[in-house]
Amino acid sequence: MGFDVQFGWSGTITVVMLGATKTDGGTRRISYRIGGGKTLPFLEKTPDSSAPLIAFEICDDPQNWSPIVRNYCGDKANDCGEWAKSADSVYGADMVRLYLTSTRQRNFSDIASLGKTVDAVLSSTSLPLIIEGSNEPKIDSDVFLKCGEAGEGERMLLGTAEAGRYRSIAAAAMAYNHAVIAQSPIDVNLAKQLNILLKEIGVSRDHIVIDPYTGSLGYGFEYSYSAMERIRFSALKGDADLAMPIICSAIDSLTVKEVREAEPAIQDDIAVQWEFTTGLAAAAAGAEIICVRHPRTIPLLRKAFSNLKAGKVSDGGQ
């Protein structure tokens, strides 16, 4: 055909494995390999990479979680084992992302309880897990070691490393062979720097997922969208320090004015549209794990992604 577009890419997104099945030494029923792309998202003629994964976010202390989600999920939101089970069998997520929000209480010290929480979630779902630790550098080390230990062998994704605090999480990830989320504030250079820092202390590239920070739709999403595109572009151009898969979590989506102040009758709809639109556009920009908090967003994203991985399409680029 006359019009084949050539971008001249040379790089490949590094493949990162998440979740371990029995054969890999874990107990998950499925294990994912994300990354592998050699061109812009959804542009490949032969599928080098799989559809983006959809992660459902839950927490172990929902008092500050969006009331929209708490109302929708009901009692389950107070029991993260039950919540995780629903994420898997009812809502249809690919992964569960557990925020250990209990650690955010003042003077939190009950580290042992975290191991139990992670165990409970691991036993109530056989999906791969993402675990978000504390917000408090002083307890980071204990928190991450405890989580890492509880999920040993399961190839979890631990979050969140930032430029100022990445050592504890990296140590836990290396000790128990988990992957790490590396978050930087909407800037391709900062993302690269952090990846280099992680590499220097021994975290290998195929254990890193980039979180460029996602401002929610209408509240900084344009910056995040471009940061994702820049990261993907640099990766395809051959910069191995940016060639990691991207995770997108627009955590403020359910608290922005348009959603918060929506009429009750359409509040769920608008919350879902906000998450869906953000997640889909982020996937088009290069994100490969899309995190959501409203269960109804999951089937919508699922359907769109399958339509985006429809198979052979003529007139594509490489």
């Binding site: 577009v5 998202p41 959804f42 088009a284 985006l308």
Partner: peptide, 11 residues
């Protein structure tokens, strides 16, 4: 499909 749109439009 959505994919066909992205492929052709980007091309």
């Amino acid at each position: 499909s959505l994919q066909a749109f992205i492929v052709r439009s980007t091309t």
